[in-house]
Design a protein around this nucleic acid. Structure first.
Length: 362
DNA sequence: AACCCGGGGGT
DNA sequence: ACCCCAGGGTT
């Protein structure tokens, strides 16, 4: 690794100059309310600012204090999070709000260690809250920081390894402007997000260009380095849309799989898409409809959803049932078909429910 | 260390 | 089709 001692002071100086001229106003930057800062940081995990912004405004308006959030019903919180993804964030947010409101006397933790101990708060989020809410000297290391530092200092260590994380963490700690850690943290993330972008980096107009190792070696788009590639597995879902008069049976999803605490329908998963004949021979089918007569109305086209490391293929089998359905466990609930907006669904269910070419629940 | 957890937007 | 996003948790 090249000796970068000289460049470190220039990096900090130029970064703060850039920030003073070019930072973007964000609605969670006008406060030092730790609750509001925490809320914004959880929403922004693996989420673009533009995507998270309306969710932030909605949460802040509905839950202006941590107690409002703590006292909200879980289904309501999940519904407000619907569509944002990574739903463990919403579950941890709600659990942590209860903890703060009722175990910590409504007072948000004010040390790095105590913030870091909260559910859903890792190294990045703890450093962000500690610096933004309390001016504590902790450097953030997020995707922006990896990109900016790897390029400027020409570091090709893969960022998704233990050694890489350690190296970038150490550099970030060295660079932290301890007099004003909040401004420094905000500056490096803003710079990465709007100037030193993954693609179409604005090198041409960059005042850091003169000292940027990647620019000098024409390696801007080779950094940062990631070593791991993920494999995508396809899963085949067969959703059983069980209608009983004006009601339809929903199922609350449990732990150990995607979409925990969201709602869907009775589900039979198979290694491939099955015909209705094949479906009725599965164990899942007989377990669900032991002594019940089922009248299959129709089977939908395949709906597709791509997740980070899964591809979901789902077909929806609409059926009427004569006698009352006997659910095998308490995760099944009967819901009125015109009150489905009370439930948070995965995107692929909303795609199905909102497909006007289908005749649902006829 | 490897894997899991979403959905949107850009290229 | 692939990458990235103000990452964190579990095994």
């Amino acid at each position: 690794m090249p000796n970068t001692t000289h460049n470190k002071a220039a990096f900090i100086k130029d970064l703060l100059v850039w920030f003073a001229q070019s930072h973007r106003p964000l609605p969670w930057k006008d406060t030092q309310d730790a609750y509001i800062i925490w809320l914004s940081e959880i929403i922004l995990q693996q989420t673009r600012v533009e995507q998270g912004l309306p969710y932030f405004e909605r949460f802040r308006a509905n839950y202006p204090t941590v107690k409002h959030l703590a006292d909200a019903p879980e289904d309501e919180v999940m519904r407000m999070w619907e569509g944002l993804g990574y739903y463990s964030r919403a579950r941890n947010l709600h659990a942590t709000a209860k903890l703060i409101a009722y175990e910590l006397n409504g007072e948000f933790p004010d040390t790095f260690e105590n913030i870091r101990a909260l559910k859903g708060v890792g190294d990045y989020t703890a450093a962000a809250i500690a610096s933004f809410a309390y001016d504590l000297p902790h450097a953030v290391v997020d995707g922006n920081v990896y990109r900016v530092l790897s390029r400027y200092f020409g570091i090709a260590t893969p960022i998704d390894t233990t050694a890489g994380k350690k190296q970038f963490r150490a550099l970030a700690d060295e660079l932290l402007h301890s007099k004003d850690p909040a401004t420094y943290n905000q500056a490096i993330m803003d710079f990465g997000a709007t100037h030193c972008k993954p693609k179409q980096a604005l090198c041409k107009t960059c005042l850091m260009q003169k000292n940027c190792a990647a620019f000098a070696k024409k390696k801007v788009y080779d950094l940062p380095v990631k070593s791991k590639k993920l494999k995508k597995i396809t899963r085949y879902f067969h959703y059983l849309v069980i209608n009983e008069g004006q009601d339809v049976w929903l199922k609350k999803r449990g732990p150990g799989d995607i979409w925990q605490n969201l709602y869907d329908f009775g589900l039979i998963e198979a290694p491939a898409t099955l015909t209705t004949d094949e479906l009725q021979k599965t164990e899942g089918w007989s377990a669900l409809f032991k002594n019940t007569n089922v009248d299959i109305k129709s089977i939908s086209r395949p709906f597709l959803q791509t997740l980070t490391h899964r591809k979901i293929v789902a077909v929806f089998i609409e059926m009427n049932i004569q006698k009352s359905f006997q659910p095998p466990d308490a995760s099944y609930i009967k819901a009125s078909r015109n009150q489905l907006d009370q439930y948070a669904f995965p995107r692929i269910l909303n795609d199905y429910l909102n497909d006007n070419t289908l005749e649902l629940f006829s």
